[in-house]
Amino acid sequence: MLPLIVKRLYFSSWSGSWASKMEGRQKLLERLDVGGDPELEREKADALARIRSQIEESRRKEAEEDRQLSARFE
């Protein structure tokens, strides 16, 4: 069940910053109570690590795109 919940945190369309939207969903996953089940705790930790990494990568890409866009207008 947890993999399905994690899968549904992702979205296929959005406006604005993907990273900002995912940070909100990351917070939801952080608050998810898995009842102390060690297997679910591990799956949750793995999913959070993956999401954090994706958010960081998205932030880097967004910053680079902003720099390139700014350079065009200088």
Rank of each mutant, 00 (worst) to 15 (best):
49 A>M: 05
17 S>T: 00
22 M>E: 08
30 E>L: 05
13 S>A: 12
48 L>H: 10
57 E>G: 13
55 I>V: 13
70 S>W: 03
67 R>E: 11
35 G>E: 02
59 R>D: 10
13 S>K: 12
7 K>D: 14
36 G>N: 08
74 E>R: 15
25 R>K: 15
4 L>R: 12
39 E>A: 13
35 G>C: 04
14 W>I: 02
7 K>I: 01
20 S>A: 15
12 S>T: 09
69 L>Q: 10
69 L>T: 03
31 R>E: 12
65 E>Y: 05
33 D>S: 08
40 L>D: 12
72 R>I: 01
15 S>N: 10
61 K>C: 09
71 A>Y: 06
2 L>S: 06
19 A>E: 05
40 L>M: 11
43 E>V: 00
18 W>Q: 13
30 E>D: 08
32 L>D: 04
70 S>L: 08
56 E>N: 13
71 A>R: 14
23 E>C: 00
51 I>F: 02
34 V>W: 07
19 A>C: 05
57 E>I: 02
53 S>D: 08
33 D>M: 06
35 G>M: 01
67 R>V: 01
16 G>Y: 04
55 I>E: 09
61 K>W: 04
67 R>P: 05
55 I>C: 14
29 L>F: 00
15 S>D: 09
30 E>V: 02
73 F>V: 06
66 D>R: 13
19 A>S: 14
70 S>V: 00
50 R>I: 01
44 K>Y: 00
33 D>T: 00
52 R>H: 12
22 M>D: 10
67 R>Q: 14
52 R>E: 09
70 S>A: 15
24 G>R: 10
47 A>P: 07
33 D>F: 01
71 A>M: 07
52 R>A: 15
58 S>Q: 15
51 I>W: 02
1 M>I: 01
44 K>G: 12
62 E>M: 04
29 L>M: 06
2 L>H: 09
69 L>M: 09
32 L>Y: 06
24 G>W: 00
62 E>V: 00
5 I>C: 09
19 A>N: 05
44 K>H: 06
22 M>K: 10
54 Q>R: 15
31 R>V: 02
41 E>N: 08
4 L>H: 11
72 R>S: 11
54 Q>E: 14
51 I>S: 12
28 L>H: 04
73 F>N: 14
57 E>R: 15
28 L>W: 05
21 K>W: 02
65 E>W: 03
12 S>L: 02
24 G>K: 10
36 G>L: 02
73 F>M: 12
36 G>V: 01
62 E>F: 06
9 L>H: 05
8 R>D: 11
24 G>Q: 11
29 L>A: 11
62 E>K: 09
58 S>D: 09
8 R>H: 11
22 M>F: 03
5 I>W: 03
59 R>Q: 13
11 F>E: 11
1 M>T: 01
27 K>I: 01
40 L>C: 04
60 R>E: 10
59 R>A: 08
2 L>Q: 07
65 E>A: 14
67 R>K: 14
2 L>R: 06
1 M>C: 03
12 S>C: 03
63 A>Q: 11
16 G>W: 01
34 V>G: 10
52 R>I: 00
38 P>R: 05
17 S>H: 09
8 R>V: 00
47 A>S: 14
62 E>H: 12
40 L>V: 00
64 E>V: 03
29 L>C: 07
19 A>M: 01
16 G>E: 06
38 P>N: 10
37 D>L: 03
29 L>I: 02
50 R>D: 11
44 K>M: 04
31 R>L: 09
